[in-house]
Design a binder for these strands. Structure first.
Lengths: 163, 163
DNA sequence: CTAATGTGGTCAGGTTATCTGACTATGTGC
DNA sequence: GCACATAGTCAGATAACCTGACCACATTAG
């Protein structure tokens, strides 16, 4: 019905995903800013997400985040300036350096964790735990389907089994 | 559940939304690039999404997309260079100019529409139409909850512009 | 009919988050 | 110990946004 207007992809699946994602992100980062971490932006979560207690190499972090080492270096630099991580030598490899959390960085990780949990709890309370489980399940399945190469482009010749 | 490691927010709800969203987007834009529209990037959909057959004003497009007119002008400029839209005078207002689709632009809109439909059909075939309806419903509810101000954490005196 | 005010759009310049390519320093295998 | 791979930096570019200042034209009030 709504497909009569050729410009109507406002409610494509993409838009349906993007909008709540943005809202969620805005909410969590607004809370974090209010908790004393206004300098940390969504992109920096790529650093915090995979960093190990003993420190992680830049290249490894970049790889895990799916970006170039230059981009990761840029993000890390910002976090160093604001005292969330330090860069030290890697005892196992003289070329490498290790990025590790400072205590402020650790406090941020905790704050991020609990901010995101609070929003999830709000949603769970409003929509029901069952709906949230459903949501995660469907999103996970979606990911699996979209990562499966034989489902790619043009015309898929055969329909493979899901999961 | 695995929350012992403080760095574990890899499977936050945010990540669960972001990953399939990115995959979806990559898939659709890869198809569009393969169909002869490699110059169009996700951001440009903000232009195509709301443009009317008789042309739309820049300011209106910017408003609908929730961005500044300067940003919209930047996107439109790119599309003009690649022949997807033209900018002409607005017969009703000498100050204003109208952005309208060229036939190439119309062809792109059709291609985008069908690429996105194909992916949705694939997902529907793999996950079931019911799951897709569930997904959209939950995402919609999530949006509603997250846009409701009284659900906001602690104290949030400021409210962003409604998109 | 002008004058004040409001609106459409541009110009100039800045920020964030990415990228590529070239390079240096170091480690590793033979 | 040399060839090559790897960790990271430097330089520079790009995409997609932003704010503030401004001009051209429109509308409305007197």
């Amino acid at each position: 019905m709504s497909a009569l207007n050729p410009t109507d992809h406002a409610d494509s699946l993409g838009a349906s995903l993007r909008r709540p994602y943005r809202l969620l992100q805005e909410r969590v980062y607004a809370e974090l800013a209010a908790s004393g971490f206004p300098e940390i932006r969504p992109a920096h979560s790529a650093v915090f997400r995979h960093i190990l207690p003993e420190g992680s190499r830049l290249t490894v972090l970049a790889e895990q985040a799916g970006m170039t080492k230059q981009s990761m270096a840029y993000l890390v630099e910002h976090l160093v300036e604001h005292g969330h991580v330090t860069i030290g030598p890697d005892p196992d490899d003289g070329r490498a350096r290790r990025v590790r959390l400072t205590s402020r960085g650790e406090r941020f990780v905790q704050a991020a964790l609990s901010a995101s949990q609070r929003v999830e709890e709000l949603l769970s309370a409003e929509l029901g735990a069952k709906a949230m489980r459903e949501l995660r399940r469907i999103l996970g399945d979606m990911e699996t389907v979209l990562m499966t190469p034989e489902n790619h482009a043009s015309q898929s010749p055969e329909k493979g089994p899901s999961v």
